[in-house]
Every structure is written in C-alpha cells, then in structure tokens.
Simulated assay, not measured.
Amino acid sequence: MLKDELQSVREKFFTNAPSHVTDNVTRATNELIESGFATGLKKGDKAPDFTLKNAAGKSITLSKVLEDGPVILNFYRGGWCPYCNLELRAYEAMLEDIKAAGAQLIAISPQTPDQSLTTVEKNNLSYEVVSDPSQEVIAAYNLLFEMPEYLVETYKHDFNLNLADYNSKQHSWRLPVAGTVVISQSGTIIMSSANVDYMYRAEPEEVLRNLKNHSKV
C-alpha cells in the first residue's frame, strides 16, 4: 500500500537527516497545522472550474472533462518530492480501475509545464498532469501555503533544492498541501482530503472506494 512506501521513506529521512533539518521540517509542519490554513475545500462544496495546460501544452478544462464523468484531482508538490512521486505512481498503477469506475484523474502542481513533462516521463504517467504556475487554482481549492524562510534556507542549503528551478520565479516558495479531491459529474465535491504533513497522503484505494460508493447512490 502507498502508506507503507511513504512510511519507509519517512523513516529513512528521520534516521539519516541532520537533527536541525528534521527539526525545521517538523516545526514548519506543526506551524502550518496550528495556523488552520490550507485545509482544503469540504465535501458538498462546488468544485472551482479551471483551465490549465497539461505537460504537452494542451489546455485542460475541468468542466469539459466532467462532461464524461467524475474526476479525481490530485494536488502534489512537485516532481522533486519523493513522496509525491510515490503517490503519482500509485495512481498510475490503479488507473484502469479508475477508468472502469467511469472517472478520470488529473494531477496538479505549481511546476512549469516543462517540469510537469519531466515528471510524466520520469514516472511513466498516462493520465493528465497539469501546471498551475500562477497557483490560482491551488488557492481556489484552499490548499496553498507559503514556506517559512527558515525552511526555504533548509531546502536550499541542506537539500540543495531551489524551487525557482521548478516553479514560476514569482511564486517559487509557495506550494500546495498534498490534497485529493473527488468531484461528481455535477461538479460537487464528494470527497476531500488535505494532508498538511506532506509525508502522509490519502490512500488511493480509499479514494476509489469513495468514488464507487457515490456512483451507487
């Protein structure tokens, strides 16, 4: 299961990373939880419509995709995030089951289209992966937050990672909380999960179960 793979990566991080790094990551997560920000939309809310470019540069409009059935939206941080890559591959592994349930999957990140294409190729993804460089859609789904300066420095100096290489230069250090939203064909949210601690994600099997249960109602 995805949670077991995520737990393995998490344990390695906390075992091997310097204490000041793990302390900063934990501090930032706790501060975000306490802030009450980026908690996602709720079940029963109307899903905000959007048009974003996919990895091939084609415009994808949510309302148009919904004409063919329900949609699962997966908001991920970026292809540089090992937890995100595990999650993206987990959804790819069950894509046929999602299609069999009459649904489609769209993954959204603040990465530029070129970086989204790299993510698609690296993970061999066959579903839509779209870019939200302005982060307006991420914000509309109440998942957007800004990294604190001390964590930015940790990413730059300890992880050797500069998000300006992946996201728009204007909003490099703003990210989505890892979130998953299931949207009915009518555009209503039937499941919403927002994991402020990025090391944990909604289990794809549970997401699919919610989708199937709704279709039976």
Results as ranks from 00 to 15, higher is better:
31 E>P: 07
167 N>F: 02
29 T>V: 15
158 D>V: 10
204 P>C: 05
211 L>K: 04
45 D>E: 09
165 D>M: 10
145 F>E: 06
99 K>I: 11
27 R>S: 11
8 S>I: 12
62 L>H: 01
84 C>F: 02
146 E>S: 15
25 V>F: 11
76 Y>D: 03
41 L>C: 07
95 L>S: 07
63 S>G: 01
191 M>V: 03
62 L>T: 04
66 L>E: 06
135 Q>N: 05
169 K>V: 14
191 M>A: 14
112 T>Y: 03
48 P>Q: 04
214 H>T: 09
179 G>W: 00
41 L>G: 05
16 N>H: 13
165 D>V: 09
190 I>H: 01
164 A>R: 14
163 L>V: 02
51 T>L: 00
161 L>M: 15
70 P>M: 08
176 P>M: 01
158 D>P: 05
159 F>T: 06
132 D>L: 03
126 S>Y: 03
42 K>A: 13
75 F>Y: 08
94 M>A: 01
42 K>F: 08
43 K>P: 01
141 Y>F: 14
214 H>G: 03
98 I>C: 10
140 A>Q: 06
69 G>A: 08
118 T>C: 02
82 P>V: 04
24 N>M: 11
177 V>C: 09
116 S>R: 11
166 Y>I: 02
113 P>N: 02
162 N>E: 12
19 S>N: 10
78 G>K: 09
150 Y>G: 00
16 N>Y: 12
193 S>E: 15
15 T>Q: 15
157 H>Y: 14
188 T>L: 02
70 P>R: 06
192 S>A: 15
36 G>M: 08
177 V>Y: 09
3 K>F: 11
44 G>F: 10
2 L>K: 10
32 L>A: 06
56 A>P: 01
3 K>C: 10
159 F>V: 07
64 K>H: 11
40 G>Q: 06
122 K>G: 02
201 R>C: 06
82 P>C: 09
56 A>I: 09
168 S>D: 14
144 L>F: 03
34 E>N: 13
41 L>P: 06
213 N>R: 13
94 M>D: 00
153 E>T: 14
200 Y>A: 12
127 Y>A: 06
162 N>Q: 11
169 K>S: 14
119 T>N: 09
210 N>Y: 13
16 N>C: 08
143 L>Y: 08
22 T>G: 00
34 E>F: 01
3 K>V: 12
132 D>N: 08
5 E>S: 13
112 T>N: 10
130 V>C: 07
20 H>F: 14
156 K>L: 15
86 L>D: 00
116 S>A: 11
33 I>N: 05
135 Q>T: 14
10 R>F: 12
97 D>R: 13
141 Y>A: 03
99 K>Q: 15
48 P>Y: 07
34 E>I: 03
161 L>Y: 10
32 L>N: 04
110 P>S: 02
205 E>K: 15
191 M>P: 00
162 N>T: 10
186 S>P: 02
138 I>F: 07
201 R>H: 12
88 L>G: 02
145 F>Q: 10
96 E>T: 13
177 V>L: 05
128 E>Q: 15
131 S>E: 01
13 F>R: 04
188 T>Q: 12
